[in-house]
Design a protein around this nucleic acid. Structure first.
Length: 264
DNA sequence: ATGGTCGGTGTCCGA
């Protein structure tokens, strides 16, 4: 049986509950990793999600901001809470499957508007978060590790991950310093970019379109902010990848769309 | 070059 793992920044899990239902009606998903759930434990819609078949849920959230959750049809062991940048925000949730495969669901800070850590504490936070991710994975580096890293990493690393490389060089999400740190995290554990295994780097590939565009589909000024990585031990099991672009056109959409990978 | 829209919360902040 193949395993289907999805990542989706839902921008409020409560508001998007009907769209999670629509998603699973259109795509078979075994494990769904959510970001920006924006719900503390008492507000998290456990019952509604369990009713959709996700019996196993590990949700970590706070009021109004951030929040990550892993929903699964198959049992897993929830990972311990991690702490990043001396903050109590909820940006990393871990699930360990029966065969030892670790699912790491991340929500990297967006970083604000000004791409200068001296002028913008949000950008400084983003860069520090990436440094900590690099060190965290480097400390756990082992070629036998079976790891799947997913989430809204808020960086579009390749030229064809944005609608205009030149126009976005000074726009947070595509600046050289972020792209360099993104690469450092990736190299810290020799992660493989699962999405680009199926779409060549010369082809445009987006997962996010701003709410502010008058016609997101026609303008198509997207960015690939959401990612799926696997360790070398899982590379041969990768069988497919889908970006569900249509979800951006659903009623009351998130600005991000789901990405699904299939593993043998 | 500018401003555009969401969601959660509370009379704005973060994306």
């Amino acid at each position: 049986m193949p395993l289907r793992v999805a990542t989706w920044n839902v921008n409020s899990v409560r508001l998007r509950l009907p769209l999670v239902q629509k998603l699973i009606g259109e795509a078979k998903i075994d494990i769904l990793c959510l970001q920006e759930t924006k719900a503390q434990q008492t507000d998290f819609p456990f019952d509604g999600l369990k009713a959709l078949g996700f019996e196993h849920i590990h949700a970590q959230g706070q009021k109004s901001y951030n929040g990550t959750a892993i929903l699964s049809r198959i049992p897993f062991t929830p990972g311990d809470q991690t702490r990043w940048c001396d903050k109590d925000d909820c940006r990393h949730t871990i699930a360990v499957l029966g065969d030892g495969t670790e699912i790491h669901n991340f929500y990297v800070p967006a970083g604000g508007d000004i791409p200068d850590p001296a002028l913008n504490v949000k950008f400084a936070h983003k860069l520090r978060f990436l440094d900590e991710m690099r060190d965290w994975f480097a400390a756990r580096s082992n070629p036998n590790n079976k790891m799947i890293v997913v989430g809204d990493l808020n960086i579009a690393p390749l030229e064809e991950d944005v609608w205009s490389h030149k126009a976005l060089l000074k726009v947070v999400s595509h600046t050289p310093i972020e792209v360099e740190k993104f690469g450092e995290v990736q190299r810290s554990h020799r992660f493989i970019d699962a999405m680009r295994k199926f779409v060549p780097p010369t082809d445009k590939l987006y997962t996010w379109w701003s709410y502010r565009a008058a016609d997101w589909d026609a303008a198509d000024k997207g960015r690939r902010l959401d990612h799926v990585w696997v360790t070398g031990a899982l590379e041969d099991r990768l069988k497919g990848m889908e970006v569900l672009r249509a979800a951006r056109g659903w009623a009351q959409p998130s600005d991000h769309v789901p990405v699904v990978v299939t593993l043998k």
